[in-house]
Structure formats: structure tokens, C-alpha cells
């Protein structure tokens, strides 16, 4: 059981809540309080749009412990519209093959369960092919 560590990250996990640097305007995800671009203190909250493009991807056919339930699944590095890249699973993949450059959008999904059936459910960001709005 790892309740506190999941709990403390809930805002960024559920909704891609990051930071914006007040000095150089860089958008920061995950939040780290220190701007990776200019080194200044950056604690201003910034909500990412959740839109991005696939930088790279692979399929996990041999899932690590705790993820077998969802295997096989696709993991991608997604370049967010605002700049930073994030690692996340892709979900709701239809017939269209995944490709580098594919536009994706953030959704909040079950990431894993902390303990078989009894433990807390960890929710967090995943990405799916953009749905026509």
C-alpha cells in the first residue's frame, strides 16, 4: 500500500496540473517548483490542455507486476502542446494504427490497483486518439 505517494500527486495525475515559470513563461510538467529552463523558482499552478502528439511509443507485452491486468498495453511519450513531454499509456485505440506524430488527448483512467481487489484504485492520465468534438 502506497497511499500517501499516490494521494499527494492526485492533482497532476487526474488533470495534468503542472506549473508555469513566472520568469520565463516555460510550462512545466511534472511540477518541480524549479524551472528546468531558467532555474528560477516556479510554483505557479498551470493546467495543461491535455492535447499533444506522440513522440514515440511501444507495446508492453510483458507487463511489470501490478499491470498484468491490462496487458498488453501501449505506452507512449507524448509531446504536450505547451512543450513538456510525458510518459503515459495510450487507451481507446481503435483500428487506426498508432503512429509517431498522431494527435492525442488526455483522459483520466484507472492506472492500476494498489493491491488485488482490496487496495486503492490509482487514477491518472492516459491519452487517446483525439475525438472529433
Amino acid at each position: 500500500m502506497e497511499i500517501p505517494r499516490h494521494w499527494r500527486l492526485k492533482q497532476q495525475r487526474y488533470a495534468l496540473m503542472g506549473e508555469v515559470c513566472p520568469h520565463c513563461e516555460a510550462k512545466i510538467f511534472p511540477p518541480r517548483d524549479v524551472c528546468p529552463e531558467c532555474g528560477g523558482e516556479a510554483k505557479t499552478q498551470f493546467a495543461f490542455s491535455g492535447k499533444g502528439k506522440i513522440y514515440s511509443y511501444t507495446v508492453m507485452r510483458d507487463a511489470p507486476a501490478g499491470f498484468e491486468h491490462n496487458s498488453p498495453y501501449t505506452v507512449a511519450v507524448v509531446a504536450l502542446e505547451e512543450g513538456p513531454m510525458v510518459t503515459a499509456q495510450l487507451t481507446d485505440l481503435g483500428e487506426e494504427p498508432v503512429a509517431i506524430g498522431m494527435p492525442v488527448e488526455m483522459v483520466t483512467r484507472k492506472i492500476r490497483e494498489d493491491g488485488e481487489r482490496k487496495g486503492m484504485i490509482v487514477y491518472g492520465y492516459k491519452f487517446r486518439p483525439v475525438m472529433a468534438a
Binding site: 487526474y14 499509456q89 487507451t91 483520466t108 483512467r109 484507472k110
Partner: peptide, 13 residues
Amino acid sequence: AGLDEDVITMSIE
């Protein structure tokens, strides 16, 4: 619902 969906995730969307 997909493997990673439940009432909470669907409610969020």
C-alpha cells in the same frame, strides 16, 4: 467499458 474504465473515470469525462 474498457479495462481501465469505471464509474469514476466515465463520470470525469
